[in-house]
Amino acid sequence: MRTIPKHTTRLFVLFICLSFKLVAQKVNETLKLQVMDEKFSITTPVPSELDPVAINAKLIFSEDQKQFAIVMKVNILSSWHIYSSVTKNSPLIATKINENLPPDTAIALGDWIKPATTPFNEEATIFDGEDFYFIRYYQLNNGKSLPKDTNISLYYQACDPYQCFPPQTKTIQLLK
């Protein structure tokens, strides 16, 4: 009788494990729908000439509480922008999101889903306009809950065609 080579068996086991992991880490479709709906309930302060970038954020949990999404809403004053990406040697400062979540609490299900960008020049693309959203989905680890100080920060540098403000960080506490 022909025997199955050892490495084939190992590959098969690895494939099965990966498949299970992929299934386990798939974002709950109902949660996606909840996010699509609930993101519109997030309100931000009104941006002004002295503070042209307003943000707010919200945690949205799936019905079974096993997955959640962090949704950040950004509202930029008309004619102002922040940088979404910059070339390697550019002095311009790209926007960064930093979520303060203990690493053993939850696993990110993919990267941040970012809004569309606008070309700025050969060095950069920008985010501009009112009411756009950054979304990231997570799977809570078994038996874990989010700590009270769970927060999210946006690091950005804002400019209009005539002036720029220094880079700054705004932080939103997610559990209130």
């Binding site: 002095p91 311009l92 002036q163 720029c164 220094p166």
Partner: peptide, 8 residues
């Protein structure tokens, strides 16, 4: 000025 300031 600053290096990251395009209007500058």
């Amino acid at each position: 000025y600053t290096v990251w300031c395009s209007p500058c």
